[in-house]
């Protein structure tokens, strides 16, 4: 291990090393869930992403890091085609989910988004009750029919999101009345209620305090058992703590990707090194 590196954050080193112990080995066993090849994105005439190719491993957490405006959110939105909803956005290249091209015209985006859920940077619960927030997704996809089924899905999703005990007495009160951290966990519960295979999270903790952040990081670590998770984050520590694989973006290019421990301890590219050591200018 290259030891001359100067980590700006004291806790980063032990965490990254901790990941080293099992991360790479674990990653090697995982099959590829999402495969992006030469993905480019244009907003009008402006190109925001240049030929990005990356493999996302199954049932692991992949972190996207990079300076602001480098195209992390843009790439993330390609994976469930949320870019379709942006005026003037065009996507080139190929993204496969389980070997299936998700930009195939015959593919239904509604079905895709049921398989690839998303949690946004700012908690955005519906202005409805907590129960309705969680039950809505399964209901529109025809996954629940009776009230009992709905209750079961709502309770188990809230449990998985670690929110159930806090809200069990107020399931029928508006979701907008929760605290920011609770709202974000509600949004995660809402996303997992649909039973997605992949969950995209765009800076899910950026609006939260350290304690709420810790709770969500723990949650992400648990969810990794069953879901493929892609998380965009600005926090090096967070990427090191929760992810097994990290991809570093810079100015619309994917500069480097690999096992998290390797990226954080022994990056190949100078830019990666500068960024993770906080010397980026």
């Amino acid at each position: 291990m290259a030891s001359g590196m100067n980590f700006p954050h004291a806790e980063l080193t032990p965490n990254a090393e901790q990941a080293t112990d099992h991360g790479a080995a674990e990653l090697a066993q995982r099959s590829v869930r999402v495969r992006a090849s030469d993905v480019s994105v244009f907003y009008g005439a402006k190109q925001a992403l240049f030929d990005v190719s990356v493999d996302i491993p199954d049932r692991a957490v992949t972190a996207f890091i990079g300076p602001s405006g480098c195209g992390k959110s843009t790439f993330l939105r390609c994976i469930n085609r949320m870019n379709d909803t942006i005026e003037g956005a065009r996507v080139g290249g190929k993204i496969e989910l389980d070997g299936e091209d998700i930009y195939d015209p015959s593919l239904d985006v509604v079905e895709l988004r049921a398989r690839v859920g998303m949690v946004f940077q700012k908690p955005n619960p519906f202005p409805k009750s907590i129960f309705e927030n969680v039950a809505y997704g399964p209901r529109i996809h025809g996954l629940i029919r009776t009230k009992a089924e709905a209750e079961e899905v709502v309770v188990s999703s809230l449990r998985k999101a670690g929110l159930f005990n806090e809200v069990k007495d107020r399931l029928h009160e508006p979701g907008t009345g929760l605290s920011g951290g609770q709202q974000q966990r509600l949004c995660i519960a809402r996303a997992i209620a649909v039973g997605p295979e992949v969950i995209l999270m765009d800076e899910p903790c950026s609006a939260l305090d350290p304690i709420a952040t810790a709770i969500i990081e723990e949650l992400i670590d648990e969810l990794r058992e069953n879901y493929t998770i892609i998380i965009v984050t600005h926090s090096m520590q967070q990427a090191a703590r929760v992810s097994q694989k990290t991809a570093f973006f810079h100015l619309g290019n994917l500069v480097e990707e690999g096992p998290t421990d390797k990226i954080f301890t022994n990056p190949e590219d100078k830019r990666t090194q500068d960024y993770i050591t906080g010397r980026f200018g």
Partner: peptide, 20 residues
């Protein structure tokens, strides 16, 4: 963000408009 929430869950455009 409300539209994104609905679309991100896999609601169709019509469902997004009429439900939310």
């Amino acid at each position: 963000s409300l539209r994104q929430a609905a679309l991100g869950l896999g609601a169709s455009r019509t469902q997004m408009v009429f439900h939310h």
